[in-house]
Amino acid sequence: MGSSENQISCTLNSSCDCVDVLCSMVEVMGQRASLSDKQTNRMVLAVDELFANIAQHGYHGLEGQVDMRAACENDILSFELRDYAKPIADASALCTSNPCLNSELSPGGLGLQLICAVMDKIEHEPLPDGNRWHLIKYLNEGEDDES
């Protein structure tokens, strides 16, 4: 695990017993970004859901490497998860700036719905040997996160 004042990084196994490590890292970043307890809980939720999606749909429940990097710079809190699963050619439907505003809530899409409700932006980059995902939260945007 690596850490500096504004960022934390580590490598995890996608097996589920790593979820608690991931959540602890997000909590630390939330505190460093001076987020409220509720806001931090929402960040934990979003990262937890993305990690679960990678584990379930990327690695199909098998063990796989996930590199995680969290950073807080210039009023932007970002979480990057890099997997080495099969690259997704086109995840554009998931990765617009407001991807879920018009989507219907369905049981299968609940995790994505929660990520979208919490984060301001989701980015996906297919790589030759995997995928890179970015969850971005703009701080001090004036929106009422406590509502």
Partner: peptide
């Protein structure tokens, strides 16, 4: 302390 979509789906 925390619940995610897997937990919510179970309750559904």
């Amino acid at each position: 302390r925390f619940i995610d979509s897997a937990g919510l789906a179970t309750l559904v």
